[in-house]
Amino acid sequence: MESSRKVVVDDEEEQRNWLDLPRDVMCTVFQKLDAVEILTRAERVCSAWRSVSKDPLLWRTIHMPDSGDSDFQLWVLCRRAIDLSSGHLLSIYIENFATDDLLRYITLNASHLRCLRLACCYRISDEGLYEVAERLPQLEELDISLSSGITKDSLEAIGRCCPHLKSLKFNMEGYRRPHVESNEEAYAIAETMPNLCHLQLFGNKLTNEGLLAILDGCPHLESLDLRQCFNVTLVGGLGKRCAEQIKDLRLPYDPTDDYPFEAEIDYGSFDEDYPSGISDIDFMSDDDYDYYYEFSGESDFSDYEYENYYDL
């Protein structure tokens, strides 16, 4: 009997302590949830939780991954989260459902935004990013991953209008065929974003010329991710310069385990690209061989596919 009574008392004590948690502690707990979880579940638990969910300081960061709900519901929830921020929004992450209209709503109601991250948002365009550039001059971090319809023009607009931009992720789906080379985005970045410290260009079509332009135009770069940029060959003088200038460098064939999106690719066969059996490796000097081993930190090609690394 005493044991049963003790369990009941303990349960009541735990419940009372949970509800009486200081408001700042409750806000910390809520910050572990994404926006959809708060707006569809947590705020409905009780009046105390509903009150906490309306605290503008809770909405300085909005994280909205694709939850599987309809785009309309997510769009409505995102607008509500922005409204709840009451102008305090500093960082927002949206996966899959962003549109130009939603970007416009963000720029009109979050003038102090510092970080904008868009993943797999195929319905945004240059027009939407033009408004971002025009209305968010304090932007410091921009992530546009796997979003089609974006050209060098919007990158140039961002670069010209957002002088405080320190981090850019402009990621695409890497592929080898058909073989396409383009330095448009690389030149836009090099010419308009001199203060960049971190740059990720996963799957970009830039060549060595575009990379060299970035190294010249962005002297403050500390990290550079070139994974699956298959037109880049980091040997000789360019490889040496990258090693000296960039503290954290990811090479085209580096592992993609920590990349948050699908990164598998069909590399094809060596002979398809070089039916004559000749590749860049045939034109390397002995010094290039020695430098490659030193640069990659290996004594052989075990970490890279020998054929594919020079198969351009």
Rank of each mutant, 00 (worst) to 15 (best):
Y130M: 11
E131C: 11
E131S: 15
V132D: 04
V132M: 04
R135H: 11
R135V: 08
L136T: 08
P137L: 01
P137H: 00
Q138D: 14
L139Y: 10
E140C: 09
E141W: 15
L142F: 11
D143G: 00
I144L: 12
I144A: 00
S147F: 10
S148T: 15
G149V: 09
I150K: 07
T151G: 03
K152C: 07
K152M: 08
D153I: 12
S154W: 06
E156H: 01
E156L: 07
I158L: 14
C161L: 13
C161K: 15
H164V: 06
L165W: 13
K166N: 04
S167K: 14
S167L: 12
M172C: 10
M172V: 02
M172L: 13
E173V: 12
Y175H: 08
Y175M: 06
R176T: 03
R176N: 03
R176I: 02
R177I: 00
R177Q: 02
H179T: 05
H179I: 07
V180L: 01
N183L: 03
E184I: 03
E185S: 14
E185Q: 14
A186C: 04
Y187V: 12
I189A: 06
I189P: 09
E191D: 14
T192H: 11
N195V: 11
N195H: 14
N195T: 11
L196R: 05
C197R: 15
C197I: 11
C197L: 12
C197E: 15
H198N: 09
H198Y: 13
L201S: 07
F202G: 00
G203F: 08
N204C: 13
K205G: 04
K205R: 14
N208W: 03
N208D: 03
E209H: 11
L211F: 04
L211T: 02
L212Q: 13
A213W: 09
A213G: 08
A213E: 12
G217M: 03
P219F: 02
